[in-house]
Structures are given as structure tokens and as C-alpha cells.
Nucleic acid binder design. Structure first.
Lengths: 248, 248
DNA sequence: GAGTGGTCTAGACCACTAC
DNA sequence: TAGTGGTCTAGACCACTCC
């Protein structure tokens, strides 16, 4: 959509906000990954204290305009757009690569276990059924980006551990290898501050804002649940668009 | 869902993070709106500088645990849950009130205007058609919370300006007064840093994180578009849950 | 070792809200 | 007027990355 009315800008009262707006404009046309002036340089060039210069860069980090790494510097940031809708989303790996970044998936665990009660209920499995518990971590340009857990009925995916290539899409495997024709049964997205344990699993010190994505896939062919998932995706790295239907 | 494995906590390295965790635990059981110790008090009680105490409260504000107001203090915060799905969502006013907060809606503009091109296309209107342009601002406990624009075909809602009570739900009016039986045609949600003009319209100095919610409602009875909307909702005030289908 | 961001201090003045 | 948070300074030491 397009904005209709314009509103007069008010000049920021604080020095650090005025400087932040200035740097944001300067940085807007630079490609992602470009090095931004350091705190010390900003301070010297604009005659402010280092703390003020620091406040500028922190403000821009809050706006997701830059990303800061201790010991390395401050860099221009861009979020990767990722659409989620009633249909199965496009491959994560492909989406990230198309955005010009380097995706990497690592499977931290593939184990066949007795299904916990709530998983059994959600997957409509009989008592004492086993499920494949899958834990995967994904990075973008080496930066931890998502952490995901899935549960699949073990009888539907025999030998999944061997068949799941490290780089491949789980959905492709379910579709092409096992012929399950997965479709969305339900899904749910919500924004939250990552709890401490998720931050640890992501290898982060801070507690990032993250989207919690949960859902279940059913097999169109078999008419039964195939996968139950919950994943955490950092909101500063992904611009997740949740949509249903489509505009004219 | 329920977490499956636990992860060992690491003690925060920085003093302000350790203190933030401590205060967060203390504050967890207090009701929303409770006054939290001030920067000065925190500093004195824990033998740290005011800047460190300030860093603690700012960290908790980033985690949406507290809300800070200049001149008044720091207060325990709770986000209001608001579900969005294929069906028309529950009344905003009712949802906020049920959460124990005081909602207020003000209509800033109700005007019949010539439809801009993109609105005309989306609403499938003929050339030179007129639409009702509706701009509404909502507050929660006096705090600006959302800013929304809607466009409706003028011929479908004659006399809307008089019929739209300040406190009432637009959807109820469309359904009960005009008998339009509105249903969702499409919708889309996305998280973003509010642009400067939206921040101004919300009456805020900072640039809050906000959910951009867009969509179109069609009349089931008439089979034609009824309302096109775009709204911004502050992510620190609302826990917006986006869902499709439902878990078992 | 040089440069980056992360933490922390002591102190100052200001803007805003309440009473 | 007193108390709150918001901005800003000058300086210090630390942790981390890269060469």
C-alpha cells in the first residue's frame, strides 16, 4: 500500500538521535556488510563523547539498520525476507542464498524416541509409538539464526537420519523420498524475547527478539500428521511476512 | 508446546545483566502497573553507578518486562494478547478491556473522498468512485497503541460518520447496521521499526517496533470488497498471535 | 599490537510529572 | 519542589578479532 497523507518531521531533540538519523540516511544506499564508522571515529568526527557515538550506533542497531560485532566492527544490515502462508514455504536455504547470504544448516540431533504425551496426541499416534526427534540449527553468514525442533512418526520416515542430507530441505525429503505430500494442518506465529535457554542454544549472550513459529504438517496422501515443529527465528535477521490470500 | 530438553544456564558476565535477571525474577509475579525501583534506588541499594542501574532497567524495557515513563517512573508491563486469523478477530476494545486495561478509540477522520488509484483497484471500484477514508487512533491506558487507516466504498456505507460510535467496533457496524457480513479476503502481517511519520502519528518520540497489519474484507452477501485496511500496532504493548487452523 | 565493541565510574544538567 | 527518567562528558579497563 501507499501512504496517503504526509506528516511534518520534527527534528530530534537529542544529539545522538539527530546523528543516528544522519548516519541512517548515509548508510541507506550502501550494500549489506559494509563497514560503518566505529564509535571512536564517529566521536572524533562529530566532536561528541564516545558514549554518545556509542548511543548512535546502538540506536541504529535497535532499528535493525546495522549489526555490531565485538572486536570486528559495525556493519550495514539487511533483513532477509521470508514469507509464511498456508502453503509450504519456499526452501529456507534457497531463500537465504537468493538474498545474497550464505546459509548453513546443521542437524544437532536425529534420534528415534518414545513420543512424549503431548507429541503423541498432536500427531495422533497410538500409545508407545516412537517418533524421530530432529533438532536443527541454521546460520546466516556464520551468524546463528534459527533453532528448530521437529517430531515425526518413526514409521513414516524409516532411515531418515541417513537420508537427510546436511544441506537439504526436510520438506523435499518428505515429499520426494517418502512421497508424503505434506500440507499445512495448522500454524502459528508469535513474536517474543527469546528465553534464556533458547539464547544459549543459539549461541548468543543477549536475548534476541525472535519469532516463534509452530505448526503441523499432514500428509495429503495418507491423511495423517507427518511433522510437528517449533522453531525460533531471530527477528533482526529475518523479515518474516505472514500472509493469507493475496492482494489484487 | 512444552520444552523437551533443558540447557544449563550460564551466569551473565556483566553486572547489569546479572542484576537485570534478578529484578526480572522479582518482578515476574507483580501485577502490571506496579512501580519498580528507580534508577537512583537500584544504584544505591546495589552499590553500582546510576548508569549501570539505568542499563539494568533499559535491558528490562528491551525485554518488554517493564515500561518507563520520564518523570513518572518504571512500571511492570504486560503485553495484551491479540489473536489474528482467517476469521474476523474479536473486538479490539473488548480484548483490551478483558486484559484489565482501559481501551480508547478516537476517530481522527471520516471523510468521503475520490478513491486513489490503488484503493480503487483493490476495492474493485469503477473510475471516479468515492470511498470513505477512516483514520483511527487507539490508546491503552492512555498510551498510544495503534494507528489505522481504512477505505470503504462510499455507496456501501451511507451515513457511516454518524453511525460509527466513537467506542464501537467498525466490524459490528458493518455487520449489524449495513448487513454486509464481512469476511477476510486476504491479510498480511509483518514486523518493522515504525517509520518516522508513523511514530509522529502515534505521538511518540522513539521509533517503536510495530506490527504492520494489512488486509481486505469482502461482503459474503454481496460478493464484493468492503474494507481495505492498514494499521500499525506497537509490539511492546501487544502480543499478536498470528494463526491458521488450530492445534489438537 | 592495534582496533573494535562491552562494561563501568563519578559527576553534571535537563525535561518531565507529580504534589 | 522533589523525584523520575533522558542526555552527555572524560576517563578507565576489559574482551574480542585480526594481522
Amino acid at each position: 500500500m501507499t501512504p496517503v497523507a504526509t506528516v511534518q518531521r520534527r527534528p530530534p531533540s537529542a544529539a545522538y538521535l539527530a546523528l543516528a538519523d544522519e548516519v541512517e540516511r548515509d548508510v541507506a544506499q550502501l550494500p549489506a556488510g559494509t563497514l560503518v564508522p566505529s564509535e571512536h571515529e564517529l566521536a572524533g568526527r562529530h566532536g561528541v563523547s564516545r558514549l554518545t557515538a556509542r548511543a548512535v550506533l546502538q540506536e541504529l542497531e535497535r532499528r535493525w539498520v546495522v549489526r555490531r560485532v565485538q572486536g570486528r566492527g559495525t556493519f550495514v544490515a539487511r533483513r532477509i525476507e521470508y514469507r509464511i502462508g498456508p502453503d509450504i514455504p519456499a526452501s529456507w536455504t534457497e531463500t537465504v542464498r537468493r538474498a545474497g547470504a550464505e546459509p548453513r544448516s546443521t542437524t544437532e540431533r536425529v534420534a528415534t524416541v518414545r513420543a512424549p504425551g503431548w507429541v503423541r496426541r498432536e500427531l495422533a499416534l497410538p500409545a508407545r509409538a516412537t517418533v524421530v526427534h530432529l533438532v536443527r540449527r541454521r546460520t546466516v553468514d556464520g551468524e546463528p539464526a534459527t533453532w528448530a525442533e521437529s517430531w515425526l512418526p518413526a514409521d513414516l520416515v524409516p532411515g531418515l537420519a541417513e537420508r537427510l542430507p546436511a544441506e537439504g530441505s526436510l520438506h523435499h525429503v518428505l515429499h520426494d523420498v517418502y512421497g508424503l505430500e505434506p500440507v499445512r494442518a495448522w500454524y502459528r506465529a508469535e513474536l517474543d524475547v527469546a528465553p534464556d535457554d533458547v539464547a544459549v542454544r543459539l549461541g548468543l549472550r543477549a536475548r534476541p527478539l525472535a519469532l516463534v513459529l509452530q505448526g503441523r504438517l499432514d500428509s495429503r496422501r495418507l491423511g495423517r500428521p507427518v511433522e510437528l515443529t517449533r522453531s525460533w527465528a531471530r527477528a533482526d535477521l529475518f523479515r518474516i511476512v505472514f500472509e493469507m490470500g493475496s492482494a489484487t
